[in-house]
Structure formats: structure tokens, C-alpha cells
Design a protein around this nucleic acid. Sequence first.
RNA 1: GCCGCGUUGGUCAAUCGGUUAAGACGCAUCCCUUUCACGGAUGAAUGAGGGGUUCGAUUCCCCUACGCGGUACCA
Length: 504
Amino acid sequence: MDKKPRLRFAPSPTGGLHIGGVRTVLYNYLFAKQHGGDFVLRIEDTDQGRFVAGAEEYIYETLHWCGLEPDESPLKPGLFGPYRQSERKPLYRNYADQLIDRGLAYYAFDTPEELEHRRKTTPNFQYNVATRAGLRNSLTLTDQEVKILIEKGIPYTIRIRMPENEEIRFTDMIRGELVFQTSLVDDKVLLKADGMPTYHLAVVVDDFLMEITHVFRGEEWLSSAPVHILLWKHLYGEDKMPRWAHLPLILKPDGNGKLSKRDGDRLGFPVFAMDWTDPRNGEKTTGFKERGFLPEAFINFLALQGWNDGTEQEVFSLEELILKFSIDRVHKGGAKFNYEKAKWFNSEWIKKLPVTHYLPQVKASLEQQGISVKKDDQLKTVMELVRDRCSLLSDFAGQSAFFFRYPATIDLASVQPKWNEQKNLFFAELIRTYELIPRWEHEELERTFKEIAAVNEIKTGELMLPLRIMLVGQKSGPGVFHIAEVLGRKETFDRIRKGLQLLS
RNA sequence: GCCGCGUUGGUCAAUCGGUUAAGACGCAUCCCUUUCACGGAUGAAUGAGGGGUUCGAUUCCCCUACGCGGUACCA
């Protein structure tokens, strides 16, 4: 690579950031970092009608949570600002005019209503080589007429003039050589009547001005790529053009089609990275973060949705991804979103990371359930005991609540039928012996327990379940003596006594 | 409709002309654990269809089917 790579993510701030968007960020970021380049965040807010309050802040927060910090952004301007297209408005006009002067673009005076009418009445209507001669534009009007219309303040757009019968070729880093016939591409609007550029003009101008070297974007942009390529040729020369890669889509799990927010609502999994509340209707969409995902797992999962390193490794840290990512191993076909697999990645990361790494979140979720934990050390021990049975951070509260308060329900039904006086006596003796035990520690507790059982000639197996039920309330959980150790002498006795009472 | 891009188990996927077509998730069975989970073992399950090219195609080419994306003064 001769130049320092510069890649960008250019979202339109219109709502929550969807996992497809995060994956696009990720691939851009990984490539930039791998090659010692920069990752730029540019806000594409040229559509003033679609402004959504808070959407831009949400993007920053999401990127931050994911650990994908931009090197340059509206919040952290570099040498190529401003980083919001709405603030770059004056820049674009000049390029549009330049294209007009060179006959590569033209003024179009057709109103949106007129065009809509044409689209309704003419099947397959496109504003292109075939139809532009019959429409109201500077190609069909005389210079004098055009001048008058402009002077009178009649609204107009500037459209690119697609050449006739030419081929536009380019190399996509994922898909290889691509060819488009210019006659079949329509004359896209470059500058809107409000003076704002459309995406097509703005991307090209900004990517040039910001010295972007690689454009990785979603597959939905592939069909407009020829317009962008042509603009690059006209404006800056093909040699200046960034390299392109069109990323496969993330598809809905059932059926086909691009994954949408609705699929998440319908199937019960998150689609956005973080919670998003639409300010227009107050509608709330839950995110991976709030569902209990670790950013490490979320990123890991997303990276593997459309890419792999060719080995059997699946668990990658961000650092490893930076090292191993390669754009030419990105797939062409879309991947169906698999929530079960996402959770698997999370359980892997829960096991891999030190529990202290996510202890604050677990503590907060326990607090939400009215359990306030005083000693972090104790929580840490508990978390280490239960982490294997948690695939989401939000599972911890349910798995560990009984350590901190007496169980809400006691499953007596699973011990009652086989309960007898002999067992009753056993537990009474157990308490007496445990009172004298010097070290309150699980191995010691277990040994003592078994000794007493042997003396009383009761099978240990007959007694373990009752103990568990008394301490936990149910049949699951970590090793019962580990639990007793954490609970401590007094609490263990209290629970056994309470259990005995319930069983008698 | 038109243009473009895709298509290996239920899902994610390896393979870059020769393999018993990996591995993972999920599922099933078993082992471990005197519980549940973790872990371990085993198993069921895959090249859309049709033509070529080739000694040999999952792999290269063509056609068909299917799917998706685009077809806005949205990005």
C-alpha cells in the first residue's frame, strides 16, 4: 500500500444503528487499523426531511460501546472537516456547476409531481438517455429559456448526463470485475432543488476531499456504483479513485431478505446495537448491549458473519481481528442472522474474560432486582461459580440471586416424597457437627457431610438433593458445598433449619 | 418489468479441478458432574436443476430456476 489508507463510515443519522451497519463499521475499521490507516466517521445528513433528534449521538455511543473509535469525526475533527455533510453544503455546488459547464450534467426543471406522474403512467420509466429529450431540462430548452427560468427562481435539480452506449468497468475487492452499460443507468440527481447534494454527489466529493482510499459499503450501493465511478472519472480522474468493496447483506433468519428492525420485534431478538427510542413516536427498540451482550462478543459475532480466516478459529478479540481480517476472504453471498450463535459467542466471552470486566453490569442488574451487593469480592466469587451457566449478562441475576437472599420458592415436591425421620435427624446432626468445623470451606464441608452420612448409613445421594433444595430452592446451580461455603456458616444453618421446618 | 449481485447441511461455513466434502451453532444419544450447566465423545444432516470443458467437477463456462439488492429531488 503506497498511501496511508483512510476509510470511512458514512451513516445517515435517521435512527438506531442496525447490526449490518455495525458490521460495515467493523470491516472498515479492521482494514484501516491493520494497515496503519485512519478510520473516519462522516455524518451524511443531506436529507433535511429525515432529521431525527438524537440519532447522531446514538451513533457515537454505539461506536464507543463497540470499541470502534473513529480517528476523525464531527466530535474529533481532523484535517478534513467539517465532518457533517450539512456543514459542507457550499462545497458541492461548485462541482455540480463544473459538470454543467463541461456538458456532463444538466439542469432539470421537472417537478417531483410531474416525474411521479410519468413513473405512474409510463411503465419502466427512467430519467435517462431514452427519455431526457422529452423532459424539461437544459438539454431540451434553449440557453435563453434556461437562463430565464433560473432567474425567475424556478426550482431545478442538476442531473448527471449518462453517456450513451458506453461501459463502466471497475474492480470490486470482493466481487471482482464488474461491468455496467451506461445506457441502462439513469440520470441521477446530483444537486437537489434545495441546493443540497444527493448522496451520489456528496460521497464522491467528500471521499475525494477527505482523501478516502477504500470504500467498503453495503451491497445495496452496488447498483449506483457506476454513477459514482463516472463522477470520479469526470471530477478527479480514475487514478485518484478509492478502491471499492461491496459487502454482503445480513439477512433475516427466516425466509430471505435484508434483516430489519421488524424481524427483531417479530422473532424476539435485538437488531440494534443499543437501545433506541424513536423520538417521533416513543417506540423503543432493545439493543444487544441492554440484552446482556458483551461488546467483545458482539463484535466477534459480527466479524464472523460474512468473513472467516480460513482456519477453525472462531473466537477472536478485536486485536486478533485487526491482525487477521482480510477483505478478500469476505463472502459474496449474504448471511442469515443467527441469534443462537450470537449467544454462543457471548457465553464464550463470559467464560474467557475476567468476571471483574463485567461485574459492574451484573451488579447493576442485581440492584434492579432489589439486591444490593455490598462486597464486590463476594460477587466476584459468585460470578465465577455461575458464569458457565450464563450466556447473557442478564442471566447472572437469575443464577445468583439465591446467594444474596433466601430463595423465593422452595421446590419441596422433589424431596418431600422421600423425606423421613432418619433424614431429619441427619440434618440436625449435620448442623451440630458443622458448628464445630474449624475451616468453613467446601472440601471440608463435603468430607464431613459424607462421614455423617456413612455413620448414619444413608446414601449420600439421598441427602445431596435435600441440602440443595434447602439452600437454593431448586435443583440447579453450582456445587452445593461451594454454595454453602459462599453462604457462610450462619446463613447455611438458617436455611437448613428453615428447610427442616418446611419439610416436617 | 428492467439492471445488478448471489446460491455448499436447519444456520454460519472450509474447499481456490482429484478430500471418506472440514469445523462451529443448534439438535439427538452417551460420558462426566450424587443437581443443572460447563466439558468430553458419538450421531443425524450439505454442493438448486440442466447442459458443457476436462481423464476427473462443489470448484471453470453457459442456460434455467430461485433469492436478494437497486430502480426517489432517501441514504
